[in-house]
Amino acid sequence: MLLTKYSHACVRIEKEDGALVIDPGTLSETGEVLAGADAILITHEHADHFDQEAVLAALAATPSLPVHAPAVVADALRAAAPGTAGQVHTTAAGGTFTTAGFSVRCLGGQHALIHPSIPVVANVGYLVDDAVYHPGDSLIVPPGVQVQTLLVPVHAPWSKVAEVVDFVVSVRAPKAFQIHDALLNESGLAFTESHIARLGAQHGTDFRHLAAGDSVEV
Rank of each mutant, 00 (worst) to 15 (best):
G136F: 07
A100V: 09
V171C: 05
Q202V: 05
A201D: 05
V67T: 04
D130A: 12
D75F: 09
F102K: 03
G109I: 06
A80L: 11
A212S: 15
A76D: 09
P119V: 11
G144N: 15
Y6S: 02
G83L: 11
D137E: 13
V141D: 03
H155G: 06
E53M: 11
V104K: 04
S194V: 05
V128N: 04
A112N: 11
A19T: 11
H195Y: 15
A74S: 11
G95A: 14
L183G: 11
V171D: 02
A76K: 09
A39T: 03
A60C: 06
G18Q: 07
L199Q: 12
T62H: 08
A76E: 09
P82L: 10
V171M: 04
A80T: 08
V165D: 00
A201C: 04
P119L: 13
L127I: 07
L210E: 05
F102W: 06
V152S: 01
V33N: 01
D181H: 13
S159A: 15
A81L: 14
E186Q: 13
N185G: 14
A182P: 01
M1L: 14
I40R: 03
D206E: 14
Q178T: 10
A81S: 15
P66F: 04
H209Q: 13
G144T: 07
T62G: 05
A201T: 01
G83K: 10
Y6C: 02
L41Y: 07
F177L: 10
D38Q: 12
Q87W: 08
V145G: 05
V147G: 02
H46D: 15
